[in-house]
């Protein structure tokens, strides 16, 4: 009897806790929207009342109008979707090639102390160079097409992923490696069955950051010289003093980056499903 009563009491308590959680979520959502309204509304009002010069700073309605026009009538270089696709494909290719190279060399040097000692100094030097300037070289050697943008994106991505893969390999648990060896694993099996999975957490963390770098590489490459892409749209808007065009391109880039971030998180959850689920609130 008393057990039944206590279960009911428990239920009531649970419901109260759930209701509290729901209210808090609603509050957070409301405040988020309120913040957005205040910032964008303030911007719009300031521009319309001439408190700021909309020629330089544009205003939200003009930016959305610009996106809308691009969607309906296309940009100066052709349809908007084509520009997005060009930039996205350059980014993805650069991201993919850079990540694979980074993971490969990170693991190779992480597993081989001699190679690591020889090359670490050069990698440090290469990493300290602002790599965006290589864009100019790539445009000269590889031309105005896709290849130069991909190359710049690869260079941007490689070092981030490499550094993380290398560190991930170095942090692999010595006990686990010793255990695998005693259980009978060859050196290759140790790499594949122990080192790679334990470095994966590091590698995937770096993928979040490096996708952003790949996008920067592609856009800057287009900026420096190209016939298509969002970077060119920005350059064109800049050349015609079209502030709304620059902000509109930024908005489009942000949407693309967020979409990809979502996909990478999905990939992460798929690959690291053995990890304990993080505690929620």
């Amino acid at each position: 009897m008393s057990a039944v009563v206590s279960t009911q009491a428990q239920d009531t308590q649970d419901q109260a806790a759930l209701a509290k959680l729901r209210r808090r979520r609603q509050l957070v959502m409301f405040l988020r929207i309120a913040f957005l309204v205040v910032v964008l509304g303030g911007w719009e009002v300031a521009a319309r009342t001439k408190a700021i010069d909309s020629f330089f700073f544009s205003m939200p309605s003009a930016i959305l109008g610009q996106v809308w026009t691009w969607m309906l009538e296309g940009t100066a270089q052709g349809s908007l979707w084509e520009q997005i696709w060009v930039t996205l494909s350059e980014t993805l290719m650069g991201f993919f090639i850079g990540s694979v190279l980074g993971i490969f060399f990170g693991i190779l040097l992480g597993r081989n102390a001699l190679l690591a000692d020889v090359f670490s100094v050069y990698i440090k030097i290469a990493n300290s160079i602002p790599r965006v300037v290589l864009g100019s070289i790539f445009i000269i050697t590889l031309g105005l097409g896709t290849a130069s943008k991909v190359a710049l994106a690869v260079v941007m991505v490689f070092f981030v992923v490499f550094a993380n893969a290398f560190q991930g390999v170095r942090e692999a648990d010595r006990n686990l490696i010793a255990n695998a060896r005693i259980l009978g694993a060859s050196s290759r099996q140790v790499t594949l069955a122990v080192v790679l999975p334990s470095a994966l957490t590091w590698i995937i963390a770096s993928l979040h950051v490096s996708f952003g770098f790949a996008l920067v590489g592609a856009v800057v490459g287009e900026f420096l010289g190209s016939r298509k892409g969002i970077g060119l749209m920005i350059a064109t808007a800049q050349g015609t003093f079209n502030a709304a065009g620059v902000f509109a391109s930024m908005l489009i880039l942000a949407v693309v980056a967020l979409g990809m971030e979502y996909l990478i998180t999905g990939l992460e959850n798929l690959l690291i499903k053995w990890r304990p689920a993080p505690l929620t609130e």
């Binding site: 010793a178 060896r181 122990v194």
Partner: peptide, 19 residues
């Protein structure tokens, strides 16, 4: 080198957490 006839149980967890 490592002898295949030997088995080793470690102090700390040495099971593979991703398996």
């Amino acid at each position: 080198g490592i002898d295949p006839r030997i088995g080793f149980v470690f102090q700390h967890d040495a099971v593979f957490p991703w398996r």
